[in-house]
Design a protein around this nucleic acid. Structure first.
Lengths: 219, 219
DNA sequence: TCACTTGTGTACCTTTAGTTACATACGAGC
DNA sequence: GCTCGTATGTAACTAAAGGTACACAAGTGA
């Protein structure tokens, strides 16, 4: 593969990286790795050492925990143009990765080696800003999630999840098992709740697909 | 104003602030406010605008949410020498404060106005490092909390909370209602579980006080 | 000492969520 | 159309946690 060309092309397409100084760009270019993963690939496991900062170029990544009994629960998603904050965390504090990571779609990731990222953080204002903004975002997401876990019952959280996950045509291509994994519960419970929503006329379900009809009744 | 002396004294007692440049120290000194609060005082409410970065000098602060039905749940504590990350978050993103804050003990707080903090962040390496470290810490705490909420039942979380909160003599001066507020549940539930622990010989309880006898049986 | 506030113990009931166990439905590929 | 793996629907049961209600105990202060 002619990978040598690719990083350069990719780099210029991000506002963030375009604002680097010349020497910053040089440094970054030398260290950067681009990786492609297929949908539903586990790319990091809990306890793994982290080689660098993960930056999502394209696709979508899911960060989740697995409890002792095996049920998963999504902590947050990483979308294009975002850093995986846990990798930043590991880099700055020399920690092991604290969760599992899976691609949710076909995904392209840029990996900036730890020492390169730390150097850039020292000297490049853009990187400092991006870092702080990334941490900010994730703190908000985690807090919101924690708050909603303790404030709302599963039905409300499910409704909320459906609304947030639905595409613009109010459709959601996802199986009940997948939904259950996001919310940290089991398939049967989701089936029961979706059943109630269907009975109330709020949803239509079919195999691997949910269509939202009336949002108002759900929340 | 003869307040000008106080910040200087306080300032020098922190490693972090001692490492500031001369101009950084000047800037900080001009803007810094020191505030004292009594134990159990609500110092920030959700939705409030935040004037600056809160730094705990002495005492202990509790950051918590309140759900629609009125039950509280502790998100995390802030101890001496730590920043309140949510205030940093508000400062960098111009947000309203997302939770409630109460002093847990008599507490002294340094408040660095938003614009001063942002300036310092631009130029002072120490502040950049402190900021990132503060964010790191909180991301870890929130993630751990989220993980344990979804992985463990209330009894295990209670046991864990007791062990972490107990002083070195394995004693905890706290009422059942307070414990309930930390874990986001009700007093009765805590009473029931403590009752079970007592029956099992793991604890001794008296009014406003819990003594841990055998930790091993609890986890 | 006595009234009062605050904290504790506990019994009973309800709701919510997780578990077990099947029956059935869909749809891609032969 | 038929087959088979995967997805869904659902009923019955269990467990966990919250809610109600009240008795009682331990300090507090007039």
């Amino acid at each position: 593969m002619n990978q040598s060309l690719k990083p350069v092309i990719e780099l210029d397409s991000f506002n963030a990286f375009r604002q680097l100084t010349i020497s910053g760009k040089e440094l970054l270019k030398r260290g950067l790795h681009i990786k492609h993963y297929q949908r539903r690939t586990t790319i990091v496991e809990k306890g793994q050492t982290v080689s660098g900062a993960f930056f999502v170029i394209d696709g979508k990544i899911r960060v989740f925990t697995i409890s002792p009994d095996g049920t998963e629960a999504t902590l947050y998603f990483i979308r294009p143009d975002e850093f995986c904050v846990f990798t930043l965390n590991c880099i700055f504090n020399d920690l092991l990765y604290p969760a599992w990571v899976q691609t949710d779609l076909d995904t392209t990731v840029a990996i900036i080696p730890a020492n390169v990222y730390r150097s850039l953080f020292q000297t490049e204002k853009v990187i400092q800003d991006i870092t702080v903004r990334a941490f900010s975002t994730i703190v908000n997401r985690l807090m919101t999630e924690l708050e909603s876990v303790h404030s709302y019952n599963l039905e409300k959280r499910l409704a909320n999840f459906l609304l947030l996950s639905a595409s613009s045509d109010r459709t959601l291509m996802m199986t009940q098992s997948e939904i259950a994994a996001h919310l940290g519960t089991t398939r049967e419970v989701i089936a029961r709740m979706l059943g109630r929503f269907v009975k109330a006329g709020s949803l239509e379900t079919s195999r691997g697909k949910i269509k939202i009809l009336r949002l108002s009744d759900m929340l």
